[in-house]
Nucleic acid binder design. Structure first.
Lengths: 302, 302
DNA sequence: CGATGTTCATATATTTATGTATAGCGATGC
DNA sequence: GCATCGCTATACATAAATATATGAACATCG
């Protein structure tokens, strides 16, 4: 550890970790395989530890390398955040905004909101991370997050949107064959779609409706999105956001009056970004769009 | 923003920000002024914004550059953390550990503890950040922190040490001239040493002893350390850790029975570091050393 | 079992980045 | 008011990092 290694070595290191080979990393970075190889050699030399076991079909990371991966990942996200901030004009709505949202929200709800936003601001680029793994606002992995739980940290600008209503739904085709249950008890004989993991959301459901606990599920998935598409495919009865089902005439909201789960929704961003026009504008558009969405959930179908 | 700039540019950028000139940054990094200048040029080109206003006596950062500084700082701390982790042997107690503690603890209490630790492990390097600004354990600005408030975040390995007792102290010389107060009320006529900023610690003191609020202070400082040295210099009566005063025969603990503030103390480190022998060993040594210190605080003087 | 497509390692050529030397500018001090 | 000292900017020579080309090892597939 004589002299600090080039920070570019860390980038090469991370890329090799992710790609699994020097060649693939080289393609990714627009460099060549010997170059990446030399970077890894130099880094190993600098830290005095072996980082990869070379083989003729790739590089296998050592334990040391795996220990270092989180740091390298953070370097990458920070560098990306820096670049994002830098290359956006200060007083114009331009540049890239990274948004994080759950799969369902990100895929089914946000696109039209983002489309409107980009109509208004053609220079605005949006990166959407639609995943249920929550990304860190403090470290700026994302600029803005739509969350289903209230963000606790200070230094965040948080806006509560309200509750997205969830309810039992099924495809018209399914109901024509199996009948439409009118009470929770009648659900017992039906093909039910369930979740295969315990999430906060499921625990809440059990709390609200203890009966749900005893139901037998014939299809389970950990993905809320797959859950929704399973309903749409007529597999059985499941729970989804009423606002998703409403525009689709084939989807029927079951026991609309007896059963509803409210899904609290927040939009959050780092306070320091509120002076950034592109973030400010996107934040506001998300708030407005999601408020409209919740409003539309509660309208009775035309 | 065609191609991602070299990460080394960020390092040069940060160093210029910190040093205020290309030449100074070059000296810092072991490069030359034209090289750093080219890095800045290239970075400005890449992000499409002016980062510095050049003048013949240095570089003045633009607002854009100042916005980017926190990101660059984080890159630097992360790179340092990576290197620290990498260059320590996995199964040996070697390499560098970064510790954060308050000024008083870091300067007056920890050194003997660290001395013992390094006697036991000669290969262990310690970096001590003795500052009342709290550094982030999550982002590994430091590996281990001694805190006066309970760390809240998950993913931290936290050990409560107990309460460090604080009390009124004065130099024997002062008391010989001005007399020794026996009650809180008698403090009124004395030269008192106070704090010039509101801290959680002071608010707590007020809560415990409302009288303290009405006292007139003749010397104020925001630094706890300066507060302590002011007592030692005989400026007047002030509050400090009883354990600091006890070994010094010239310092007298006043109203030992009437007045005591307990200062809760915790040692914390990131959970992922508990597999690192050097961190583990240092953590344990700090816990042990601080427990001894608290014990010594409570012993009556020989 | 040989052909093909991977991979990494090595030697050589080329490009790129860096260092050196110097000039110009502005502030400070005698 | 001139000398000095710091800084940046530029031109040029050099050193360093890179790409290219190739060979050897291993897996996959017909």
């Amino acid at each position: 550890m004589n002299i600090e290694p080039s920070w570019d070595f860390y980038r090469s290191f991370l890329t090799v970790l992710r790609q699994g080979s020097l060649s693939a990393a080289a393609r990714e970075l627009g460099l060549t395989q010997p170059t990446i190889g030399r970077h890894i050699d130099a880094l190993e030399e600098a830290v005095g530890a072996e980082l990869f076991i070379r083989s003729s079909n790739g590089l296998l990371p050592t334990d040391v390398a795996l220990d270092l991966q989180p740091y390298a990942e953070m370097l990458a996200t920070t560098a990306a955040a820096l670049l994002r901030t830098a290359s956006s004009q200060r007083d114009k709505v331009e540049g890239t905004v990274r948004i994080s949202a759950s799969e369902v929200i990100g895929i089914e709800v946000l696109p039209p909101i983002i489309a409107d936003l980009q109509d208004a601001y053609p220079g605005l680029q949006v990166e959407l991370s639609a995943s249920d793994a929550l990304e860190d606002l403090m470290n700026r992995e994302v600029d803005i997050a739509v969350r289903m739980a209230e963000p606790q940290q200070d230094a965040l600008l948080v806006r509560r949107i309200g509750d997205i209503p969830l309810g039992f739904h099924a495809h018209r085709r399914y109901l024509e064959r199996h009948g439409t249950p009118q009470t929770m008890a009648e659900l017992a004989g039906h093909r039910l779609i369930g979740f295969d993991r315990q999430t906060a959301y499921i625990r809440m459901m059990r709390k609200l409706h203890p009966l749900a606990d005893e139901l037998a599920y014939s299809f389970r998935t950990s993905s809320h999105l797959a859950h929704y598409t399973a309903i749409r495919a007529g597999i059985g009865i499941g729970i989804c956001q009423t606002g998703l089902a409403r525009p689709n005439p084939d989807l029927v909201h079951i026991m609309a009056d007896e059963f509803e789960i409210p899904l609290g929704t927040w939009v959050a961003m780092h306070e320091s970004l509120k002076t950034s026009p592109r973030c400010r504008v996107t934040f506001d558009a998300l708030v407005r769009g999601l408020l409209n969405y919740i409003k539309s959930c509660k309208e009775t179908r035309a």
